[in-house]
Amino acid sequence: MTNAIDVTDLHVSITGSHVLQGVSLEVPRGGVTALLGRNGVGKTTTLRALLGLAARTGQVTILGQDTRGWPTHRVVQLGVGYVPEDRDVFAGLTVAENLRLAERVAEPNYDEAYALFPELKTRYKQRAGTLSGGQQQMLSIARVLLNAWPVLLIDEPSKGLAPKLIGDLVDALERIATGATILLVEQNLAVVKRLAQRVVVLDHGEVVHTGAVGDLADPHLAQRLLGVAGAP
């Protein structure tokens, strides 16, 4: 079976800065692949380039389709959900409107979204801008669950959340991962170790390590690759 995502020689320049310098990686179908690396190495840019939100060169094949020149909405309709780093819920819209806007299939799966995040149901009419950071993150994830997309690109879901909330979130993501392929950008190594099976490490705009999540247990490797001490 083909991979969910195949990237070959991906280059992205943003305002003159060569952010991605030939990234090649593959994301097998099923489970969680974590995209790791220090701040500013191009993890978010990689996700954005996959979606066509950043101008790129190189080959990106998603679910067997060469997406060269595709506009973002077409890539998404292929079955790719995106949970961006800063949630990017629409602050002026209600929770209900945010969700309605995300519906791309005839029968959106609200049951799944509410089963994981029951709070969204009770706050249906509330403006998304007045939700807490954690609630906004739930809404951002719920948006991609409605369509049961086979591929999810999730950028730093735990960022800025209290430890208790992170625990709930990881439980939810673990359940979501049983039915989808997730490419996860995450700084919190405890979260990575709990969710991911595979890791891809970026440095200076290139892939410097690809392997199993167990590789991170070696503190020297973690230190060298991520600039952090081995996580607990």
């Binding site: 979606l51 939100l53 506009p71 973002t72 909405h73 998404v76 309709q77 995106y82 961006p84 990017d88 629409f90 602050a91 002026g92 819209l93 409107e97 945010n98 309605r100 806007l101 995300a102 791309r104 948006r143 369509n147």
Partner: peptide, 19 residues
């Protein structure tokens, strides 16, 4: 709703699969 959302954040509207 799409127009209101687009006024707020056009890129995210595209990232939801909307033309």
């Amino acid at each position: 709703i799409t127009i209101r959302a687009g006024v707020e954040n056009r890129e995210m509207v595209q990232a939801l699969g909307i033309d």
